[in-house]
Computed example of a mutant assay.
Amino acid sequence: MNEHLVVVDLGYGDAGKGTVVDWACATLPVHAVVRFNGGAQAGHNVVLDDGRHHTFAQFGAGTFRGVRTHLSRFVVVDPLALSAEAEHLARLGVPDPFGLLTVDRDCLLATPYHVEAGRRRELARGAARHGSCGMGVGETIAYRLEHGELAPRAGDAPRELTRKLTVLREALGVEGPPVADCVAVYRAFAERVRLVDSSYTNGLVRQGPVVFEGAQGVLLDERWGFDPYTTWSTTTFANALELLDGAGAARLGVLRTYTTRHGPGPLVTEDPALELPEPHNTTGPWQGAFRLGHFDAVAHRYAAEAAGGVDGLALTHLDADVSRMCVRYDRPVTFAEPDRTARLLRASPIYEDGVSDWPAAVSHVVGAPVWLESYGPRARDKKASRPSLR
């Protein structure tokens, strides 16, 4: 492997980015994983041969392999959730999780105040809930857009952080813990991790192969997704390419052999009769139900185009007993139209049955070769077809 790899989900998330990144770090000379969007709401599942399992949120999915993680300036950092994740990794045998972590000092901080405000906003929507993860990530970004430099950041000095948190708590009109308690926790966090400036990523890229691990999916993108059922994050390759600053990288899109969605919003191919094992994704108190549908070639082709194209694909869940693909809808859906969400909610799928060669079928409809086939959750369940990925 002589180039960097950017891993992006071409669906609504949950396609298997974590298992793909873990495989890359287990088999390729990767020296760092860079997270480039989202925050603590990510859930990238990794299962080792010995049965150990962790859902990676802020740490990179290569952590079990000893590969360090860098949280770039595009990540919303939640120190409380990060500490809990580090504790779980330590219990699973990772000697010093924080020793494998660097954080850009310009990262926005998600606080208990953001969490409370975001959950309150979601509850107020009633039956029209958007499917928030309840982690305050969207509220953190919204606050920064409205208040600019008043938004708390990972590198803020204690006095500045105290001022910002006081203003934040009042502006959001929430209760939450005392500001002094939050400042004490964040000071301990800043002393435990290594904070760096934004030039650090350039150094990582020059040192050797880096995997850029995306969160969520392109169909949830703040610009290209289906409003209001979107994330407050750029889920395409754009942030990673900006961080690469012209360095070469392969763009890898991840898909399942069937389409899923966590929570409300369009899922044209949803089929309640589709029963497939799902050990790690369940109904959540904030996101809602984990929904299953047949492979939606129309939506995934759109995702690849919205992301600016892909160089290759990682196709997961090839061990699933599925054989149906949606090849078109029963009505025109122009994704460029502002009412595309309403159009999708009214659309019905037109299927092609009897799909058996999934790599060939998906490659054909998306317009990119399948570089990695995955027949299970572990690294040994993967088969690479591109020479530089072997």
Rank of each mutant, 00 (worst) to 15 (best):
N2C: 12
L10H: 00
V21F: 00
W23T: 11
T27K: 10
H31Q: 13
H31E: 06
A42C: 11
N45S: 13
F56I: 10
A57H: 09
R65E: 15
L71Q: 03
P79L: 05
A84G: 11
D96M: 07
F98S: 11
D106V: 09
C107M: 04
H114A: 10
L123C: 14
R125I: 13
C133D: 08
G134K: 02
M135E: 09
G138Y: 00
R159S: 12
T162K: 08
V167Q: 11
G173R: 02
G176V: 08
V179K: 01
A188C: 09
F189R: 00
A190L: 12
E191L: 14
V193P: 01
N202R: 15
R206I: 11
R206D: 15
G208Q: 00
G208V: 01
G208R: 01
F226T: 07
Y229H: 06
T230M: 12
A238K: 01
L241C: 05
A247V: 05
G248P: 10
G263Y: 01
T269A: 06
L274E: 03
T283V: 14
P285I: 13
W286M: 14
A289W: 08
E305H: 13
D319N: 09
P332H: 06
P332R: 04
E337A: 15
P338F: 05
R340M: 06
R346W: 05
I350V: 15
V355T: 10
S374L: 14
R378M: 15
K382A: 15
S388V: 09
R390A: 13
